[in-house]
Write a protein that binds this DNA or RNA. Structure first.
Length: 589
RNA sequence: GGCCCCGUGGUGUAGCGGCCUAACAUGCCACCCUGUCAAGGUGGAGAUCGGCGGUUCGAAUCCGCUCGGGGUCGCCA
């Protein structure tokens, strides 16, 4: 090794040692006869001092520039009291090099490495190897390593086997668009990259491994979002002979430990609250509620059941509902703000947003004239509204009220500063319907995945009222984001065929698309359940970023391309020929 | 695919019809400087304003198209 000590590790106890250091020039402060260099390596930064005591070494120090890679040998000395820098971990010591060797020079980097700066993301990604030198970026990637290491230890200690599954698998029509890989040996046929190892992990349970996990790369060829990329990493886990509670309990213990060990933020509640899907939708309008703040929905339909206000009456007559959010202390909210929230509600599908400000002086509301005193009193009673509060109301079909009021609630959470970045609000959501009707396709579809089991007591409903069948499904939600989910699976062929059939797959299609799992379920498949946990999103929460690329070493850009490697890229005609492929004229290159 | 925002020296911004022969900060280069830690001082180099076309006497500034980036809806767990 060219070095025997890490820069960031030096402490007063090292004083007197002669150390060999190597790293990058973080910053240089040249006073002429005295030069300081902050030397950075993977463990941190330490100050080097060059003076006239060693002219040859100081000459090198003069010549050196930012991000040059250098090695030094020198003595560690404790700093004089007045020169201690309390802002850095190594601030009580400094190193006096007796030799300084330039290992490699560097041009001026394309952006600042030695100070936090909001640099264009494309540039950062193009020079990701420099971006990753920035301590705050490197820290996230390093934290990711620590979390993953902990996950491995935790699961290995509990008898889980880490097993890899293929990345070249079979394309299935379910779920997201597949990434396809052409087969050279079978021209005209394609592999797909896995959206998750779902079927494979069930096969591992059939095989008798009982407890399996994997940090699996999962691929979906869909458009990106701030928290969504084409390839993400999932903690994939499956267990035999378990109930929902067994899986949730294990995951909860793991995530509680991770939060306590690695997060700056603190857990809001332990154990994690469990919300029933219906209840959750009624109170928050979404199946992934942000529990860091209240502003729950209140159904005020009863208060306005015979209202003369046509918007309310009409919605109720059409089988809809009227729901309100009570916003404490916001009775005097500006018209501009209310108008803005109205737009938010409209983007959620509502036709408008009714509002009632309960100021001390009056009932401030454009709809006050349509409401009787009794109706207002009933609304106040139901919502618990007090003087000074604002009521925001949407009247519409059930699903529209949910989406519109959720949009309003979410926006209020941001604007009123209710989303405390130092709080981790986990919750489980359970009791999802197994199936939802797709009217445009005249078939049922799985709300999560087609292998989720269902409550035995609901079996008869599969034939009579499938929408009422409750899945053995559970989602883990954190601060309004789904960070994982799973289920106890169907483990017999008849039930699996039944569900697939309801989803519109003919017997032939079932055998062609899902034959492997259907066949396997016949051979004494054990009861089994598991989860897929989004590791990238977990790291986002732990590091407090809202950009998923911050927790991935080499991420794709939002456009789905890789600015670092310049991928995707055209390929040689010969490669296409070998694969039996020809490009359509319309395809842009 | 729809919608919104952005694109000015290396980096981050300002300028939003003539005052721009494009400003500021930082970085970079040179010189001075022995205790700084975002070192300091003096001097200097550096962008024709993403691209194309148009409007205008005149465009970084207005319009259209286009390319690139970010966000969002659709899509997707």
């Amino acid at each position: 090794m060219l070095k025997d000590t890490y820069c960031g590790d030096l402490r007063p106890s090292d004083a007197g040692r002669t150390v060999r250091l190597a790293g990058w020039v973080h910053r240089r402060r040249d006073h002429g006869g005295l030069t300081f260099i902050d030397l950075r390596d993977s463990h941190g930064i330490v100050q080097l001092v060059f003076n006239a005591d060693n002219q040859a070494t100081q000459d090198v120090a003069h010549r050196v520039r930012g991000e040059w890679c250098i090695a030094v040998e020198g003595e560690v000395r404790e700093r004089a009291a007045e020169t201690v820098n309390p802002n850095m971990p190594t601030g009580q010591v400094e190193v006096y090099p007796s030799s300084c060797q330039v290992l490699n020079e560097s041009p001026t980097p394309p952006f600042y490495i030695n100070e936090p700066a909001d640099v264009d993301e494309l540039l950062r990604l193009k020079y990701r190897y420099l971006d990753l030198r920035r301590p705050e970026v490197a820290e996230s990637i390093r934290l990711r390593h620590e979390v993953v290491r902990y996950i491995r230890t935790f699961l290995c200690d509990r008898d889980f086997a880490e097993i890899e599954t293929p990345t070249l698998i079979k394309s299935t029509p379910e779920g997201a668009r597949d990434f396809l890989v052409p087969s050279r040996m079978r021209p005209g046929q394609f592999f797909a990259l896995p959206q998750s190892p779902q079927i494979l992990k069930e096969l591992l349970m059939v095989a008798g491994f009982e407890k399996y996990f994997q940090l699996a790369r999962c691929y979906r060829d869909e458009d990106f979002r701030a928290n969504r990329v084409a390839e993400h990493t999932q903690l994939d886990l499956e267990m035999s002979f378990v109930t929902e509670d067994d899986v949730m309990g294990l995951v909860e213990e793991l995530y509680t430990e991770i939060a306590k060990r690695f997060a700056k933020a603190t857990l809001l509640a332990e154990p994690f609250p469990r919300l029933d899907y219906e209840d959750c939708m009624a109170r928050y309008g979404i199946d992934r509620p942000d529990l860091r703040f209240g502003l729950e929905f209140v159904d005020i339909s009863a208060a306005v059941a015979s209202s003369g206000f046509q918007v309310f009456a009409g919605a109720l007559a059409a089988g809809g509902q009227v729901k309100a959010i009570r916003v404490p202390g916001q009775a005097e909210m500006s018209r501009k703000e209310i108008d803005s929230l109205t737009e938010v509600a409209k983007s959620g599908g509502a036709k408008g947003l009714a509002w009632i400000g309960l100021t001390a002086a009056e009932v401030r509301s454009p709809i006050a004239k349509f409401l009787t005193g009794d109706e207002l009193a009933a609304m106040r009673s139901l919502t618990g509204a007090e003087t000074g509060d604002m009521l925001l109301i949407v009247a519409d079909a059930r699903a529209t009220v949910a989406s519109a009021l959720h949009a309003v609630r979410d926006t209020l959470g941001d604007r009123l500063g209710l989303k405390d970045p130092d709080v981790l609000a986990f919750c489980w959501v359970t009791g999802f319907p197994l199936l939802e009707w797709r009217p445009e396709e005249s078939r049922w579809d799985a709300t999560h995945n087609p292998f989720s089991g269902f409550r035995e007591e609901d079996r008869a409903l599969l034939d009579t009222d499938p929408s009422k069948v409750i899945a053995k499904q559970y989602d883990l939600v954190l601060n309004g984001a789904e960070v994982g989910g799973g289920s106890v699976r169907i483990n017999n062929r008849a039930d699996q065929e039944k569900v697939l059939g309801m989803m519109g797959h003919s017997s032939e299609q079932q055998q062609e698309r899902f034959g492997v799992i259907l066949d396997a379920l016949e051979f004494g498949a054990p009861p089994m359940g598991g989860v897929g946990m989004g590791i990238d999103r977990l790291l986002m929460m732990l590091t407090g970023t809202d950009n998923i690329r911050d927790v991935i070493a080499f991420p794709k850009a939002s456009s789905g391309t890789d600015p670092l490697m310049s991928a995707p890229s055209p390929v040689d005609e010969a490669q296409l020929t070998e694969l039996g492929l020809a490009l359509r004229p319309a395809a842009k290159s």
